[in-house]
């Protein structure tokens, strides 16, 4: 049996780094890990919070996955989610009804898509790298959010920069509501979209061409796939999904938008998609794992471990997993 020592070393090194980071901030690592588990999946209230987090993570994870499948890195899910949530909250505030909720979801999707569109266009027609353009769009999106939240959309009655809360009529309904556990429809919506996308990707001609463009763009060109269109559309669809994530966060859970609303879900989406590897269905468990880590380390603040641990954990998980995938791919040749 030939052990992949190179990768075992990498895994151990990553683990050691996490351990060190925890020790450096004065925590006892086994204790910290135990707390993380308990506070993310240990009780009904913890489950509630974890599943709340999972919704945007699944949406942004799937968003990044779609683009990645076409060979594009969408680093801009963060901005797309934020812009989507703002459009969504604006519509929901204007039309406080179930119909308004539907429109608000559509608004979120459209806004997210529009926020990704320039990156797709610049990549397809000007050759500008999508990593740079999506990062720039993130910054512009954040500035836009900052302005809207401080000015036009600000709820003047409150001290913090936040919009007003939407009317209960526009909430996404709960499927389970037995406090301390409750769950609304949004997670189910995103999960269904994921399953539908997986089927489409595997069984449809367009899905085949999308994967082909990501795998071998030259062969795709020779096979009659419209390279530029696929690039623009997949980037736009990616933005739409991130925007949907923002809309669902607003309508299902947060009911308003405030500064720092997105909290890095867009960036985590990159990790979720990476961890899922080549399988769209795997985005679901991957998003769940990220939600557990995210919820777990957020709640560590209650035992005096500052925020930041999830960044370390997720960053290292992405790296270690990518190393395993790279190994698998080189093994094929």
């Amino acid at each position: 049996m030939h052990l992949p020592w190179k990768h075992i070393w990498l895994t151990l090194a990553a683990f050691a780094l996490i351990w060190l980071a925890l020790v450096a901030v004065g925590a006892y690592p086994p204790e910290a890990f135990r707390e993380m588990i308990i506070r993310s999946v240990g009780k009904p209230a913890a489950w509630r919070e974890t599943l709340f987090q999972m919704t945007p993570l699944l949406a942004t994870g799937l968003a990044v996955f779609v683009a990645l499948r076409a060979g594009l890195f969408n680093i801009g899910a963060e901005g797309q989610l934020m812009v989507g949530s703002l459009a969504s909250v604006a519509v929901a505030l204007a039309i406080p009804s179930a119909f308004g909720m539907i429109l608000a979801i559509v608004a979120g999707i459209v806004a997210g898509a529009l926020w990704a569109l320039p990156a797709g266009l610049i990549k397809a027609y000007r050759g500008g790298h999508e990593v740079i353009s999506t990062i720039m769009l993130n910054s512009i999106g954040m500035a836009l959010a900052g302005w809207l939240l401080a000015g036009p959309m600000r709820n003047k009655l409150q001290e913090s920069t936040t919009t007003a809360a939407i009317d209960e009529a526009a909430y996404i309904p709960h499927v389970v509501d037995q406090m301390p556990f409750r769950m609304n429809l949004s997670l189910i919506i995103v999960t269904l979209i994921t399953v539908g996308f997986a089927y489409w990707l595997k069984r449809s001609v367009k899905g085949y061409e999308l994967s082909l463009v990501g795998k071998n763009p030259i062969a795709a060109k020779f096979s009659g796939a419209a390279l530029k269109k696929v690039t623009v559309w997949s980037m736009t669809a990616s933005g739409a999904l991130a925007g949907l994530g923002g809309a669902l966060m607003v309508l299902g859970d947060e009911h308003r938008v405030y500064m720092g609303f997105s909290g890095g879900y867009g960036f985590d989406g990159l990790g979720v998609a990476m961890l899922a590897g080549g399988s769209p269905i795997a985005v679901v468990p991957s998003a769940f794992l990220f939600a557990v880590i995210s919820q777990g380390s957020d709640s560590l603040a209650q035992i005096q471990i500052p925020k930041g641990l999830n960044g370390v954990l997720l960053g290292l998980i992405i790296i270690v997993f990518a190393a395993y995938r790279a190994k698998k791919e080189t093994h094929h040749d």
């Binding site: 085949y208 795998k215 071998n216 062969a219 791919e329 040749d333």
Partner: peptide, 18 residues
């Protein structure tokens, strides 16, 4: 230009003819 190395023969068969 003509194949995707890590796709199956089946998936490669329809390449260009999809």
């Amino acid at each position: 230009e003509g194949v995707v190395d890590d796709w199956s023969l089946e998936a490669n068969a329809s390449l260009g003819l999809q």
